[in-house]
Design a protein around this nucleic acid. Structure first.
Lengths: 137, 137
DNA sequence: TCTTGACTTGGACTTCGTCCATTGTAGGAT
DNA sequence: ATCCTACAATGGACGAAGTCCAAGTCAAGA
């Protein structure tokens, strides 16, 4: 994803080999790696990269809106580079596989005012759960 | 919630003072306690109750479908005794306050078949996020 | 009341993540 | 091309949340 690197550079990011490797590992569709998985893959390209650096970089990418953080299972958070287009997630309750899915309509619109308790609602996270084809057998 | 205790007894649960206290602590509307909060409140009534027992009991209540487990923030899981009627959650991004809200229509229905990737979709978790009246100022 | 298997205990352990003092370096300035 | 320095990386200690397990306890049926 060199356009990601371009955008980061344009935002004044200091480009280090560590950040480059993390950004490269986190690319593609339907990618939902944990921080430790990102670290493991980063180490293959840059053996001395520290776990803390991976956590820092992921946190920055999330703050910049370039990566979405998910906690679908109460275990380790996962990082989704497909942050440019809004989407939701479909999770297999058996094996944990995650697919990105596109919402039909604006999911925010379906919450009636009477159910908003005076909140200013700004986003909605939707996670569908079920069995993937392999696990459904 | 004595009807909860009734149902549990009917399912063959051995009724212990620990389980009774956990079930009692977890009662009411808009209750979303962490395991440690449940433990803290349980200790007030039963000083010697162990943390592991609270975790065990919460896990059983979840398996029995009597309590819903939420991980809205990637921090500690929260336990919601309002499991009898399907509902969603509205979370304040500032202070963490959680309200139960009722869906308008069946949220499962809005996922098009073309976006199901062959999954057998059985449930959907929806979390609205925004600022509560106090935090919005 | 006795018995027994289910339940509880508490502390060690695991996982996931954060913190921080030290060391290194990207990239602008000279 | 080299120097500076503020920003970034390192790694190891620390912390929060949760699990595991061997030993002790007790609810409830016989």
């Amino acid at each position: 994803m060199s356009d990601l690197l371009e955008r980061l550079r344009a935002r004044g990011w200091r480009m280090t080999s560590q950040r480059r490797v993390v950004a490269e590992v986190l690319s593609g569709e339907h990618v939902h790696l944990t921080a430790d998985e990102v670290h493991a893959r980063a180490v293959e390209r840059l053996p001395e990269i520290a776990r803390a650096t991976v956590y820092n970089t992921l946190g920055e990418l999330v703050s910049l809106g370039e990566v979405v953080e998910l906690s679908t299972d109460g275990r380790a958070k996962r990082y989704d580079p497909n942050a440019r287009r809004p989407h939701q997630h479909l999770v297999c309750t058996e094996c944990g596989t995650i697919r990105d899915v596109r919402p039909a309509g604006d999911p925010l619109a379906v919450l009636p005012d009477s159910e908003r308790y005076g909140f200013t609602v700004s986003k909605v996270d939707v996670t569908y759960r079920g069995l993937c084809p392999s696990c459904a057998g």
